[in-house]
Design a protein around this nucleic acid. Structure first.
Lengths: 136, 136
DNA sequence: GTATTCCTTGACGCCGACGTCAAGGCAAGG
DNA sequence: CCTTGCCTTGACGTCGGCGTCAAGGAATAC
């Protein structure tokens, strides 16, 4: 099949496929007229790449999976190098999620504090007195 | 004070300050010789920007806080526009954290499955038979 | 004077994963 | 023949937040 059909079947664009090829990730055979030519195996490679990309993997991180498939293994993650990428990604995700939760908590605190300071007294009720060390 | 001192006191670089000025975020008065001139108020504005940046706010998102401070309010988040940014950021963080947790779970599942398929039998023990529908 | 250090503006570089436009080739249909 | 639609390579643009270099002016120390 040609590049347009492969792109459509994988839900991506021809530009993306040429980009992958330029990165050495998905090289293509050539027809006599110079057109790129792909087969079902290439579609599987491409689907592997796209799946990992959707998970937020860098292109370079998908390379072990692609190499693994091309080496004849049944799945992209049948090779130790792919498992190593999985594990590294899990660590990255844990670290990132931890940071984001920390930031979320801090922003939440700031919002609560700012809202309190912005409402010195609500209509219909007395404002709570929350000064420190107070026995009035 | 001049740009170098302000940058150092805020823990950033002169390039960054000129960039902020180019974005209209932190304009500077000029001394007679053309040098940028800042005061303690500018340091406070800059600290506000830097704090939010460390939280992952875009530069544009810090603008309401800076405007609020410049309008004479005691804190950058004393204004409704700043609170709105806080709330929007909280929503963004919640969404992002949710996505990342989902991805983390999925990657974890893939890793576990791939590890299982990679170890058809451990040395020292019989491999667990987990085929479907089996009464041997 | 001169050496040093600060300051100025301007402009290009970077990163990742492509988007977009340009100029042209090739195949098929009418 | 002409049009349409696919394909080719090449090259520049995008986004954010600066880094880095270049060429030159200004203030201070010696």
């Amino acid at each position: 099949m040609r590049i347009g059909e492969l792109a459509e079947r994988a839900g991506t664009t021809t530009r993306t496929l040429r980009y992958y090829e330029s990165r050495g990730l998905l090289p293509a055979r050539r027809a006599e007229n110079g057109y790129r030519s792909y087969d079902e195996g290439d579609l599987r490679l491409l689907q592997q790449i796209r799946t990992l990309q959707e998970f937020g993997f860098d292109l370079e991180e998908t390379r072990p999976f692609v190499d693994c498939l091309r080496a004849g293994h049944p799945a992209g993650d049948s090779c130790p190098a792919s498992l190593a990428v999985y594990r590294r990604k899990l660590d990255e995700l844990d670290a990132l999620i931890g940071q984001l939760r920390s930031v979320r908590a801090e922003v939440g605190v700031q919002l609560a504090r700012a809202e309190l300071e912005a409402s010195p007294g609500l209509p219909g009720g007395p404002a709570p007195r929350c000064e420190l060390g107070g026995q009035p």
